[in-house]
Nucleic acid binder design. Structure first.
Lengths: 200, 200, 200, 200
DNA sequence: TGCTAATCGAGACGGTACGTCAGGTCTTTAG
DNA sequence: CTAAAGACCTGACGTACCGTCTCGATTAGCA
């Protein structure tokens, strides 16, 4: 059941709106993205947008959802070669690359900032976008934990924050997220800030 | 000389604009903050705002600067009792408290999201707001490092990101930043994700 | 057979539309009367209206027709007591009263102004509504003429215009149509503007 | 003092709006005349119209006023050759010609129908447009009355209605207003409907 | 009496215009 | 010369209706 909405909603209009949104985000900054502009580009009446989405942010969210579903399978998984450090580096560097690609990063930036201002959108974001990803990350970490590569008493959600939080935060503050940064981050996070005890 | 602008700029108008901005942010979400609204509240002509600030974000930035200067001294310092863990917990929990107080968090949220979208503003932000804070943090960590409480080869900037990044990220995504979270984060970050003692 | 339309037209829907139109005209000014509003009030699909009427004005016209048929018999007649002056005063004062009653005057005003703008509607108006009334008026005047109360060479249609034209015109321009006005009008029209007896 | 409005109203914008209104009325029926269209044609922001006029009808009224001031002097007068019948015929036929010229008749029709629906506009209409004309008509009739060409006890306002009412009414109902009609009307109105007493 | 085609209520759709808000520029008046 | 005030053109907002177009679900005539 791809269409959760009742009524006689026109699927092709829905797609037109979402793709128009994504297209426009490549051309104008999010602040200049207007419902009117989306409707015009999509060849759709404004009312059709207002009928099905409560806000510009909601359109953006669905557009981003469309993008995510297209780019990846339904339930994402992290690679698991047995080498946690390598797997995480791979994923983080891929993420960093996405964050550099305007096709993904512009909608993402817009979504991130809208989430910061909109409680309801934040709930949707966590439920539909963040949770599946976080599950995949947790699963990979648990696998490593079971292999003895992570501390037994490690809080995996905190661990996820320690690995991904700095990257996202740096990106949002428009700092460069280089491969070197990822490597340094992973080394530091995995080993911890304190001195390791020298082997006796 | 806190006023870098030459000419016969009217300081009382400047203050009126900035305080009006902060006041309004307590009443309306940032998206609905308008130049007209600020001018009206400040009892100032619109042109006076356009004359001295290039954008709404710039006004916001100066307003936030005013707020920071008021709340703390010019060069902030982190407490240094010798107990790094305790000092960091104190600071992070204080930060978490500020992030819960709308008087600070609303302008902060607005600034953070504007920074994400505006390269020029991001530069100002890093230079005028982030850098001094980061210096203070780095200094505290260096002190700990010299006391042997942190690894000798630790990259202090990465360490700062690992400590503060998760908190800011979580806050921006509207997750609760509790004292428990801060404690768990600090424990995990300081010790690292890997087991301290590899199984023999 | 009052229903000239062939096919399987639903008479109850027709009535519902027309009475909804009349009802709404008591509540909102004609300019704000909408097809959607009529359909909703009538409990009828919009298409049903568009199927059977070419325009909002056509609906109004039929609604007015319904009103006229209800209030009077099919072929109206003017009273004929032999006293022309009295009969005309009676009729004109009754008309003035109707023009003061929103139940009739609102649809009437709407119809009159639509007629002014719509050639086709004007034709229908003259054929279906005005002609029968004018016939009745002409008949009454002819009766008076035959009784020697009106000039032999009088153009009855012009006479009708001289009697009813000022009243309708005054009403449309929102001037008060009082009994006194009717009396003065009749006296003046019947006697003419010129002095009856030229000075010797 | 041609500009009764306070503030810094831009006279050229005012003129542009009014002439655009008149121009558009030559191209589209009044019902299709939109504020948006006027603003676009006049090269003016919509807000400028909404700032100075309360409704589309008010714009129309001012436009018509402009037209009237242009076509005639400030205080209009009716010709007075001493021959009342001839003077009235001249004026009425000129009026009939105007009513046939779309340049005047379209705004006039629109104004007449708006007046029918809008009490406030009707007041303005009577004060600013109807009254001066009616004064001129009354003055001409009084002159005739003093010359003994009209009955001494004639109510001049009723007389005006009897002469002009039928013409306006016929025009609004889209009947043809021919010279023959005017002649018949004048003859009948001046002499009255009743038989004249034969000279003894 | 059952078939089938038109009609029905409902309402989504691409549009146009509404009347309002704000953006950023410009002009006017006062100090 | 600056500042408050606010008119101006522009563009987007979110809403109301337009007239057209599907949708099942009656429902009425003919077969």
């Amino acid at each position: 059941m791809p269409n959760p909405d009742p009524g006689r909603r026109n699927e092709s209009s829905r797609r037109a709106v979402l793709t128009a949104t994504l297209d426009l985000l490549q051309e104008v900054p999010y602040a200049r993205l207007s419902i009117e502009g989306i409707a015009a580009r999509a060849g759709v009446g404004k009312q059709t947008i207002y009928r099905w989405w409560p806000s510009k942010a909601a359109v953006l969210f669905d557009a981003f959802l469309l993008l995510s579903e297209t780019s990846s399978g339904e339930s994402p998984r992290l690679p698991d070669t047995g080498d946690l450090r390598a797997d995480l580096a791979l994923v983080l560097k891929a993420t960093a690359a996405e964050l550099d690609d305007p096709r993904l990063s512009e909608p993402m930036r817009a979504l991130a900032t809208e989430v910061a201002h909109d409680e309801a959108l934040a709930a949707s974001y966590h439920e539909r976008l963040d949770a599946p990803l976080r599950d995949a990350k947790r699963q990979r970490l648990r696998s490593a934990q079971e292999a003895g590569q992570l501390a037994d008493d490690l809080d995996l959600d905190v661990a996820i924050d320690i690995i991904w939080g700095p990257v996202l935060n740096r990106w949002l503050q428009r700092g460069p997220v280089t491969d070197e940064y990822v490597d340094a981050l992973l080394d530091t996070a995995l080993s911890g800030l304190r001195p390791r005890r020298p082997a006796p």
